[in-house]
């Protein structure tokens, strides 16, 4: 009997000694691909605690170690403030973070801590250059609801890679457009999970868990991650000092091209569908054969549900641009190429 108790005690105390935590659970060694992947990746993630005191904004998030020099990638949240942002590593050690300039378009930011201040081996994750294939399993790691505070492990959730959302994305609450594409997944993305890592079963780090983003297509919150493929340029710039080549200078003529379509738009609180009121003589639309009462439904691959959307899409194109226009006449759906003319 005593022998049994002694053995149990030894077994129970072994992980305690290792973790220094009074409530660590014993765990068997990982067996499957998923178990091994999670076990191997968790030490590369950190808990982030920031400035608190703001109503309804969680002062915590997750981050990913992206360099041996102690760079940590996370979301650029309000709580990330100089002198108030702390990083908790997998061993429970706390480090004050230095803030690097953010990437405002995707809403991410690099932090930096001193890797010499910890004995924990630093194993940075390498951002994947490719998007994951739709339907592949993914595992999402993060500190949902700050369930882990000291050396406890982050939460792991699994799901499949569901697809990519490219347009019509906006931040919840702020109602500001999110200007990137998002990896959709059915693994849940809860508060605090943002800034964590999304990985495929073959061990590739494919996404950084996003914050609350909604789609204008669905009016629902998306469980999503920012593709790592889109983060590589930012990481190269601030970790390796590789300055990206600036895009070529915009052309001098910035006024939109003309099309000659006048819509039946009586205004109102909700913009009506894009019915054609008349077509200006000699215009590109007339050459294409667009007529009064046609309904414009799509320009390129953008669906046009209202006059407002029609003008928004058209104003983004210059003279000389060729646009594939899909329009409805009676019950027929027609298509044709509209070559925008120069403005007079």
């Amino acid at each position: 009997m005593n022998h049994v108790i002694a053995t149990s005690l030894a077994l129970a105390l072994a992980p305690l000694a290792a973790q220094g935590s009074p409530y660590a659970f014993a765990e068997r060694a990982p067996l499957t691909r998923l178990e091994t992947l999670i076990d191997r990746t968790l030490p590369s993630l950190v808990k982030i605690h920031g400035a608190s005191g703001l109503q309804n904004i969680e002062p915590y998030a997750t981050g990913v170690i992206v360099s041996a020099e102690g760079h940590v990638l996370t979301l650029d949240l309000v709580m990330i403030q100089p002198g108030q942002t702390r990083i908790v590593l997998a061993d429970g050690s706390v480090h004050l973070a230095e803030l690097l300039p953010p990437e405002p378009r995707l809403g991410v930011r690099l932090l930096k801590f001193d890797p010499k201040a910890t004995t924990l081996p630093i194993r940075p994750l390498e951002p994947a250059a490719e998007l994951p294939e739709t339907g592949r399993f993914v595992v999402s790691l993060g500190n949902a609801f700050r369930l882990a505070e000291f050396s406890e492990k982050l939460s792991a959730c699994t799901g499949v890679s569901s697809g990519i959302a490219t347009t019509g994305l906006r931040y919840r609450l702020a109602d500001v457009a999110y200007e990137g594409r998002l990896l959709l997944t059915d693994a849940p993305n809860n508060p605090g999970h943002g800034g964590g890592a999304l990985l495929t079963l073959d061990g590739r780090w494919v996404g950084l868990n996003a914050r609350m983003v909604e789609s204008t297509e669905t009016n629902t919150l998306l469980s999503a991650a920012i593709p790592c493929a889109d983060l590589r340029a930012y990481l190269d710039r601030w970790i390796r000092g590789i300055v990206p080549v600036p895009p070529p200078e915009a052309v001098a003529d910035v006024s939109p091209g003309t099309h000659g379509i006048v819509l039946f738009d009586r205004g109102g609180r909700r913009s009506p569908p894009a019915y054609v009121e008349r077509v200006e003589p000699g215009s590109p639309a007339e050459s294409l054969g667009i007529r009064r009462d046609d309904l414009i439904v799509r320009i390129g691959d953008r669906t046009v549900r209202s006059c407002v959307e029609f003008h928004a899409v058209m104003s983004a194109h210059r003279a000389g641009a060729t646009l594939r226009v899909t329009y409805k006449r009676g019950d027929e759906v027609l298509q044709g190429d509209l070559v925008l003319g120069a403005s007079r």
Partner: peptide, 27 residues
Amino acid sequence: DTDELLDLENVVIGVADRLAPSLVRIE
């Protein structure tokens, strides 16, 4: 070493690709 997920993801992708032609987009 039970990597049932590796088998399942190929099944899921197979089903998605097989059904894709029967799916339509409604606007």
